[in-house]
Amino acid sequence: MIPLENFLILSSILFCIGFYGVLSRKNAILILISVELMLAAVGINFVAFSSFYDTERYSGHIFALFVVAIAAAEVGLALGIIIRLFRERKTINIDEANELKW
């Protein structure tokens, strides 16, 4: 039997790694990968709490399902945007897409 803490620790570590990736990367696709990591960590948290404590409704499971679906949608859209960006500027370095400033 695995205690709840193990899942939480795992998800925390994954979340932090993803967070670091978002902050440090420049390439849009790599940032997207890091976001996926964070979403996966959150999903673990949802399902863990749900199966330990919410045995009536399993809302955490359903939420995780939703997260998966939304993440898929997000990836699709984000990749569309990235390809568009590349087509316009010949780069996917988001530091160069900095028109929205003073």
Partner: peptide, 17 residues
């Protein structure tokens, strides 16, 4: 203060974090 708006997304994410 307007120069805080660098237009670079990582900066915004950093501030948010």
């Amino acid at each position: 203060l307007k120069f805080l708006q660098t237009g670079k997304i990582p900066n915004y994410v950093l501030m948010m974090s």
